[in-house]
Amino acid sequence: MTEQAADAAIDTACRLLLLPTIRAEFPDITTAAAKDQITYRGFLAELLMAECDDRARRRSERRIKAAGFPREKSLRSFDFDANPNVDPATIHTLASCEWIKKSQPLCLIGDSGTGKSHMLIALGTEAAMKGYRVRYTLATKLVNELVEAADGKQLNKTIARYGRVDLLCIDELGYMELDRHGAELLFQVLTEREEKNSVAIASNESFGGWTKTFTDPRLCAAIVDRLTFNGTIIETGTDSYRLASTRARAEESAKAG
């Protein structure tokens, strides 16, 4: 078989076997293998690892997309120096996702602009990259969806759908008051997830202020207990880390100038 015929056969086989990465990278890996005198076994390993790595990358991208994050945020882009309330060691420990493996909750509490949503999305992204199924939603959006599902007699189906994800990220809890019916439905979702999945929330209200969101004291206490039992609580503070970061960059520029 000539090299041209071999290349054509490899291309056809890769299409039939659904090996797009090997098909795309075969010429370059072949050239490098010949130059470095790699063994047949090593050459095969290079091809297969390239395919596996690319498939893992594409799976991560699909999980991140399925999570429904409103924007891209990463731990690398968070300015820890601008917000000393957030301990980098604690965040990097959370990035290992052991808390998700143990079905533990996470609460991020702080004023607007202190990095809660950034951290929630970044940790959710880390979880998706590590193979966990993640779903992001706003608290009000989730409650509205649950109310509509209840009205349409689809509540059990909707709750089951949220129960299938490994990590449910609920943002902006506390921005708006929830009526008793909505709060009860939210509690039902949290209860359904008990001991099976993790939930992470970001709230601009301290737990003491949650009585504004959940007007029933007993229901409020039950939700707080559900979200804090055996979990991690991070208080991101009151000062905007974005303003602090901008101010620090301006001071550095002034010194350099």
Rank of each mutant, 00 (worst) to 15 (best):
I29E: 00
D28Y: 01
L47F: 06
I29K: 04
C52G: 03
R58N: 13
D53P: 05
G42A: 08
G42D: 05
I38L: 11
M49W: 14
D36N: 13
D53G: 08
A33P: 13
R57W: 03
S60N: 15
D36T: 08
I38Y: 00
T39L: 02
E51A: 05
A34N: 10
Y40R: 06
I38T: 13
D28H: 09
A33V: 03
R41Q: 07
D36V: 01
R57A: 09
D53K: 15
L44C: 14
T39N: 02
R57D: 12
L47I: 05
D53H: 12
D54M: 06
D53C: 06
R41K: 11
R55F: 01
L47A: 07
R41L: 09
E51Y: 06
R55H: 04
M49Y: 14
C52T: 12
S60Q: 15
L48Y: 01
A50N: 11
I38W: 00
D36Q: 13
A56K: 13
R55Y: 01
A34H: 09
D53N: 14
Q37L: 09
Y40G: 14
F43E: 04
R55G: 01
A56V: 12
L47Y: 07
E51K: 10
Y40N: 10
G42I: 06
R58Y: 01
A33S: 15
A45H: 10
I29V: 14
E46W: 04
M49S: 09
D28G: 05
E51G: 07
I29P: 06
L44H: 10
L47C: 08
I29C: 08
L47E: 09
A56T: 10
A33Y: 04
D36A: 13
Q37E: 11
R59Q: 07
I38A: 08
G42W: 03
M49F: 12
L48A: 12
G42C: 09
T30K: 15
R59M: 03
R59W: 00
A50K: 08
D36R: 14
Q37D: 09
D36E: 12
R57M: 05
E46F: 02
R55N: 03
D28I: 05
L48Q: 10
R55M: 03
